[in-house]
C-alpha cells in the first residue's frame, strides 16, 4: 500500500472539494481497503465520507423509498418499510457477505463493488480490469464464475453484488452529486458491460459522489424474492442468483420482473424473458420458455457451462414459488436440516 493523504469530509460539498485526481472516497471500506492492501489499487489520497449525513431511509411521495448512500447494508435490510415493500431487496442484501461486513458496507459502496475474479485479485497475472491492456487471464483459466451474457474478449467476469441484482429488478435510481451539479442515473445506465473498457465498472464520473439510491414505488415487488446458488451455504459469492417479482391474474402472468446475478459484468435484467412471459399462463413450461428466450444470448465455455441449467432451474423454481406463495418454505429449508 502506497502512502496516501487522508482527509475527512464533513459535508457533501466538502467531500467534492476535497476530491482530487488520484483520490478515492472511503465509506465502509470493505472493498476499497482490501484493494489497497492487496496492491490492486493505489491512491494518492482518501476522502473519508463515512461521517456525512447520508444515513436516512426516507419515504418518497407515491410509495417509494430514498436510501441514503451511507446507510449500512444491515440497517437497510432491517428497515421495516423496505422489507414490506421490497422483500427481494432485503433478501438479496442478507444473502451477501457476512453480518460483520453488512454492518460496515454502505449502499453507495455496494453499487461500486468490484469483481471477485481471482485474476483481478492476483497482481502477478494479466487482467484488463486491473491493468488495462494486459490481457484477460480468466479466458482459458479459472473460469467457473465467468459470465454468460455480455462478455467481451477483454473481460469475462461478473458483477459480485447481490443487492444490485435486486436494485436492477426495482429500476432503482442512483442519485449522484458533483461539483457540476447533481444527476439521477437510472439503474440500467449505471453499470457497464466490459466491451473494450473493462476497467470501468460504472458510468459514474471521476469525483462524482453517490448520495442516495431511490426505490420507486413498485407494487409488484411486494411479491418478490431473491435466490442465490453458491458453493458454500453462506458467506460466498453467487454462482448464479435470481431476483424476481410476479403478479398473476387468474391463470396468467399479469406482471413479471426478473433480474439475474453471477451471469454478466453487470446485474442482468432479463427483459426478453419478461416480454415473453407477460400475458402467458403462469406455468412451469412458460417459465422455462421465458428463460430459454433469454438464454439464446448466452455464451458459455466448458468451465461455466453449468450456469445455463442452473439459471434455467432457478428462474423456473423462483417463479413457481412466487406463483404459489412458497418462498418462506424454501428459505426455511435453506437454513434447516432435512
Amino acid at each position: 500500500m502506497k502512502p496516501f493523504d487522508f482527509q475527512r469530509a464533513g459535508t457533501v460539498s466538502d467531500a467534492l472539494a476535497q476530491f482530487a485526481p488520484g483520490s478515492a472516497y472511503l465509506a465502509g471500506g470493505t472493498n476499497l481497503v482490501d484493494h489497497l492492501r492487496a496492491g490492486i489499487r493505489e491512491v494518492d489520497g482518501l476522502v473519508d465520507i463515512s461521517r456525512l449525513d447520508l444515513t436516512e431511509i426516507a419515504e418518497l411521495p407515491g410509495g417509494g423509498l430514498r436510501v441514503g448512500a451511507l446507510v449500512k447494508n444491515s440497517d437497510m435490510a432491517a428497515h421495516p418499510l423496505l422489507r414490506e415493500r421490497y422483500p427481494a431487496l432485503a433478501e438479496a442484501i442478507l444473502a451477501g457477505a457476512s453480518g460483520q461486513i453488512r454492518n460496515m458496507a454502505t449502499t453507495g459502496g455496494n453499487l461500486l463493488q468490484r469483481t471477485r475474479c481471482v485474476y483481478f485479485y492476483d497482481p502477478a497475472t494479466p487482467c484488463n480490469k486491473r491493468e488495462p491492456g494486459s490481457g484477460c487471464s480468466a479466458i482459458g483459466g479459472f473460469g467457473k464464475y465467468n459470465a454468460l451474457f455480455g462478455a467481451s474478449e477483454h473481460c469475462v467476469t461478473v458483477h459480485p453484488s447481490d443487492m444490485c441484482v435486486a436494485l436492477a429488478l426495482l429500476d432503482a435510481v442512483v442519485v449522484a452529486e458533483s461539483e457540476a451539479g447533481g444527476r439521477r442515473i437510472p439503474f440500467a445506465d449505471f453499470h457497464r458491460l466490459p466491451g473494450d473498457t473493462p476497467h470501468l465498472d460504472t458510468n459514474l464520473r471521476p469525483g462524482e459522489l453517490i448520495t442516495a439510491v431511490e426505490l420507486p414505488a413498485v407494487p409488484v415487488a411486494a411479491q418478490s424474492t431473491y435466490r442465490k446458488a453458491r458453493e458454500r451455504t453462506s458467506y460466498a459469492f453467487a454462482l448464479v442468483s435470481v431476483a424476481a417479482a410476479l403478479r398473476t391474474e387468474g391463470e396468467n402472468v399479469a406482471e413479471v420482473r426478473l433480474a439475474c446475478g453471477g451471469v454478466a459484468h453487470r446485474p442482468w435484467r432479463a427483459h426478453r424473458a419478461e416480454a415473453y412471459l407477460t400475458g402467458k399462463p403462469a406455468t412451469a413450461e412458460h417459465f422455462r420458455a421465458a428463460i430459454e428466450a433469454e438464454l439464446e444470448e448466452a455464451q458459455s465455455g466448458t468451465e461455466n457451462a453449468f450456469k445455463v441449467p442452473l439459471l434455467r432451474n432457478m428462474v423456473v423454481s423462483v417463479l413457481e414459488e412466487l406463483r404459489d406463495g412458497r418462498t418462506p418454505q424454501r428459505r426455511a429449508e435453506q437454513g434447516g436440516a432435512a
Binding site: 432491517a78 422483500p87 442478507l94 418462506p328 428459505r331 437454513g335 434447516g336
Partner: peptide
C-alpha cells in the same frame, strides 16, 4: 434482539 432478519429467516418481513 433488535429484530434484524437474516438469510434464513423464512419471511423476511
Amino acid at each position: 434482539a433488535q429484530g434484524m432478519p437474516s438469510h434464513v429467516t423464512p419471511d423476511v418481513r
